[in-house]
Design a protein around this nucleic acid. Sequence first.
DNA 1: ACATTAACCTGTTGGC
DNA 2: TGCCAACAGGTTAATG
Length: 263
Amino acid sequence: MPEGVEIEYYRRSSEAALGREIASIEADDAWFLKGDTTAEALVDALEGEQFSEARRIGKLLILDVSNGARLGLRFGMTGRLIVDDSASIEYLEYSSQRNDPAWDRFVVHFADGGDMRLRDPRRLGGVALDPDESALGVDAFVITPSQLRDRVLVGTVALKARLLDQARVAGIGNLIADETLWRAGLDPARQAGSLDKGESEKLVRHLRKVLAEFLENGGSHTGRLQESRHRGGQCPKDGVELLRREIGGRTTFSCPRHQPPSR
DNA sequence: ACATTAACCTGTTGGC
DNA sequence: TGCCAACAGGTTAATG
């Protein structure tokens, strides 16, 4: 599914949309428009203008408009961004491998004949004008060890649930969280504030490594744990059956041997 | 203030 | 072969 890594791919492909005159907008799916955003407001804000910059905070893609407006795009778990008929990502875990234009929920047509479309089968993504960027924590790609310690590794909530809390650190999804904790040898159910200095440093190190690797290898489904993330799957490190639990409302796989509870 | 839970969406999968 | 329940997870609202 699209996590921060995939949204970074989308951001890069959206750079091809910068500086082109916006001719028209298709925003027929009212469900897909978030907050008080309406199709009329999108038309007013975008038509005749151009995008000037493509930014990303966590899983939110923000396209700055030449008139000062900001367009926020979210992709849920099955959304893709297609610019001029080319998708930057071939494979999306848990999404349909078909590619049906009927799933276009939002389309920007450019005066030169090209377009940018948000294609989302399950409609969990969305479009918002002037999204609240302050609601998001520091992006996972650039968060510092001290920021992680102060904002993320606190409190009694499960460590994994904290990593998924976009207000604390933005961009980590279920697969990045499971892979990172698996590599760091940390139990996802540990209390977020219970890590000692060494464990915190280990977590930061692995988070950075996982993000860099996923970005280089093609997405958040390229982890070493991924092929074992199913019922009965075995830990690739030491062969024991993985523990399958629900933590933070999400299916969580971990190794009972090298990610033991409360060390 | 903080933590937890459920609901939203729908294509795909697997059991009967 | 067809039917249907279960499943996937990012986000948010509601509840404790």
